[in-house]
Amino acid sequence: MRARIFIVLVFVFAARAALAQELTPQQEAEVHAIGNHANCLCGCLTTINECPHPHCAMKAQERAVIIADVKAGDNEPKVIQDLVLKYGVKILPSPPAKGFNLTAWILPGVGLLGGLVVAVDITRRWRKARVAGPAEQPAPDPNLLAAIEEEMKDVLS
């Protein structure tokens, strides 16, 4: 346990040290921006910037990769690509719109449109059934109407 904490601390130190080493403000902003577009894989299910664990080793490791890449002059897509190579697709906050993962993006839209078609169809069928249905009832006789009015007063009072 103690040893593990120590290793974590070393990582934090390493990351902080790397961070401290001459990043221009512009580079720092870039690192921050990329941190919003890559997941922390410690199990927190948030992005690197949002990970709630202050001394998260995973976050530090990933950030170190980003910093190294940024220093090497890579732009954001390239850094992300590098992260995906190193850690897998799960580092992306949402699935890439390619191959099977494309269905993730398409299906909700298909569902929405399909639902619309069904809803419009239902209203249409309701309307048709109405037109084909029995014609208007003849006016009810006055006695009945009087009884209805009386009952209505009784119920609603």
């Binding site: 208007e136 009832q137 006016a139 009810p140 009945l144 109407l145 009884a147 209805i148 209505m152």
Partner: peptide, 13 residues
């Protein structure tokens, strides 16, 4: 209103 009344009339019958 007429429509509702005739519905009610049917139920009353």
């Amino acid at each position: 209103r007429q429509h509702y009344l005739s519905e009610a009339a049917q139920l009353m019958l």
